[in-house]
């Protein structure tokens, strides 16, 4: 049972509060690949709701900044119509999966990093974590997707994929540790789900993977996700089982429910202008 009042405002209203009390809205952009129809929907929403700024995020997504709280459910409704869902940019949850164009376009690419990134994001979106969780997939060791500063980073090599964990590009920069090398996309998926599940089950709330791994040691993480293959499969199974219930777009749930969207409007409106004084 989820108690919304126990959550910070961002997770309660599925958007990021800004310094002036307005909110920012970030739809999910699978692997950073966007369709013209989605761009059009974002542009239309930005104009319709007079969004002051549309900005690219560091994670290859688009951020609508300065949305008024009472407009949030309608913005989501409009974005939902174009197939866009919440990007969880506000949550202790799976955030972005950054990719490079990989072997489909790049003359240096040795694996299809874009497709794998999209696959990983489709599999892991909606999952709650102890803290925010970022991923990236690079199509060659030049690592244009900067996978070596992500919580789970994948870097293509000629023979398959390098799996890297515990990176952080924030306050305290920490490059990833090498977890192991694998050959197939299916293996990447299994290790990714297992790593996430071990982190979710054992890290403290608000502990990023970087500080978690420094606390428990890389050897511990390797023991349960690499050396013990049975445990790895079991962790991955538990992750996928919980995903069956977690993958519900909070925007769609709220935009279509007058009861839920009531919280977003003032209880009483007395000034004629209808604007906020904050």
């Amino acid at each position: 049972m989820d108690d919304p009042q126990s959550r910070f405002v961002n997770e309660r209203v599925h958007a990021n509060i800004q310094k002036d009390g307005s909110f920012s809205v970030v739809p999910r952009v699978w692997g950073g690949v966007v369709k013209p129809v989605e761009l059009r929907a974002i542009a239309d929403a930005a104009e319709k709701y007079r969004v002051p700024m549309v900005k690219f995020t560091g994670g290859q997504r688009l951020d609508l900044l300065g949305v008024r709280k009472e407009d949030l459910p309608r913005v989501w409704g409009d974005l939902n119509k174009a197939g866009l869902i919440s990007g969880y940019a506000y949550g202790k949850a799976l955030r972005t999966v950054k990719t490079c164009v990989g072997m489909e376009w790049c003359r240096f690419g040795v694996q299809d990093s874009t497709s794998l990134g999209i696959k990983l994001e489709k599999l892991t979106w909606g999952s709650w974590m102890p803290h925010k969780f970022k991923m990236a997939v690079s199509g060659c060791p030049r690592n244009c997707a900067e996978a070596t500063i992500k919580d789970f980073g994948v870097v293509a090599v000629e023979s398959g994929w390098e799996l890297r964990v515990g990176g952080n590009g924030g306050v305290k920069i920490r490059p990833t540790d090498l977890l192991c090398k694998v050959k197939t996309d299916q293996e990447v998926i299994e290790y990714c789900c297992a790593f996430i599940q071990l982190y979710r089950e054992e890290a403290y709330y608000l502990e990023r993977t970087s500080t978690w791994i420094e606390r428990v040691g890389l050897a511990y993480v390797k023991r349960w996700t690499v050396e013990d293959s049975e445990n790895r499969r079991e962790l991955a199974r538990r992750f996928l089982e919980s995903q069956r219930f977690a993958q519900k777009d909070p925007w769609a749930e709220c935009a279509g429910d007058p009861e839920k969207s009531r919280e977003f409007v003032p209880i009483k409106q007395l000034n004629r202008a209808g604007y906020s004084h904050v």
């Binding site: 919304p4 009042q5 126990s6 919280e263 003032p266 209880i267 009483k268 409106q269 007395l270 000034n271 209808g274 604007y275 906020s276 004084h277 904050v278």
Partner: peptide
């Protein structure tokens, strides 16, 4: 004195906004 709504309009441990003439009031 202005009536702003019913107690059950505000979930426990939260607030709702009244947009008054000159200020926003959190109830």
């Amino acid at each position: 004195w202005t009536e702003v709504g019913r107690i059950e309009d505000i979930p426990r441990l939260s607030a709702r906004v009244v947009r008054a003439e000159a200020v926003d009031v959190a109830v």
